[in-house]
Amino acid sequence: MAAALEISGLTRRFGGVTALAGVDLSLLPGEVLGLIGPNGSGKTSLFNVLSGHYAPDAGAVRLDGRDIAGWAPRRIARAGVTRSFQNLRLLKRLSLYENLRAATHSAASGRELFWQSRAAKRRERSQLMDLLALFGLEDKADDAPGALTLVEMRQLEIARLLAARPRLVLLDEPAAGMTPAETARISRIIAEHVLPGRSVIVIEHKMPLITALCRRIAVLQAGVKIADGPARAVLDDPLVRQSYFGSRPC
């Protein structure tokens, strides 16, 4: 099967620091990859380059065969790549509903800037409300996200992600700041709603989430991929254990 995502030799420097030093990585359609590594190992930098936030200094990123390396973020988003953020990026002055709707604007026509027919508005609302209902947030559709709990905020972000109808999803620490119980909940939600039919890369430090979602794991260290393979094998690899967990067994 042709790879959904094929990264080769991806390199990015910030001043004197090399955040990514020739990373190779490929992802099959529908595959879920866990990306782990110590802080500062380049995981988020990889997402930032994949989503177009920063341009790579060298290397290629093929999405369904097209090289998207260096594209502007909006073009990459339109090509079907959507990401979440470690420190949630929600629009705190807009309602939950408008937060979701943000993901649908880029597909709209110019005329819709000024006018949406009643039918189109109703159709859009019912679709997005269904999405909110999936997470039990439909009653709060008109509230601002400030009043939500952390798990609800993550759910809203995941709902926004789904509203964009992505082919490739990049999740950056979806369980950041969560208790074990909350982590288990968000992990179930991702498994149920995000994974089916999509290629996904998850960055996470919380191993229960990674082991629950991913059959394959890749490890970054200092901008270099040091391991990539079936989850169990990677986690048992002595090199990985040493770099990531210290000498402590997991």
Partner: peptide, 25 residues
């Protein structure tokens, strides 16, 4: 009523997020 005002507000609040939603900031 259309999308114009929502676009202005999204770009106004978080242009980087807007770009990552495919919006031409």
């Amino acid at each position: 009523r259309g999308r114009g005002m929502a676009l202005l507000r999204i770009v106004g609040e978080d242009p980087i997020l807007a770009a990552m939603q495919g919006i031409s900031v």
